[in-house]
Amino acid sequence: MYHTLAVLVENSPGVLARVAGLFSRRGYNIDSLAVGRTDNPAISRMTIVVEGDERVLEQVSKQLHKLVDVIKISDITSSPHVDRELVLIKVNTDAGSRGEIMQIAQIFRANIVDYGHKNLTLECTGNQEKINAFEEALRPFGIKELVRTGKVAMLRGAKYTNINRTKEED
């Protein structure tokens, strides 16, 4: 089963290497990892999607906790949350296919962010299933290039993952 972890880390050099290294050397499978700084520039937030059963997940989060730079970990999989991913797709076009592609973009509420003679670049945001469906819809036209950000996620409602609650209070 896939789990989504929200991980707050100190924005220090090497922190990404520490986290990535931990996953690889202990044999945990990362499905995706997205990272960027938070409203507090000293703190970055990672959204890590990892595959494993409860026991593996318990070990993953305990081992992550052991990293001095890791401040807080929440497994938000089972709580209501919003998750989004962004994709950029460059797809082949010609006069015949352009209209159809623009229709597909409309259906998926994607934006055309670059227009070329023989190609279009589209941007689409959504959960993983939507992104997968969008990719499949464009595949017949010939995808030249594709890049996905990996999932970012946040709890719904009044609950939040922030450093106001520290590790100990978890």
């Binding site: 001095v68 730079d69 520290t166 100990e168």
Partner: peptide
């Protein structure tokens, strides 16, 4: 003070 290191 280390935000991420508080041994129990």
């Amino acid at each position: 003070k280390l935000m991420g290191y508080k041994p129990t």
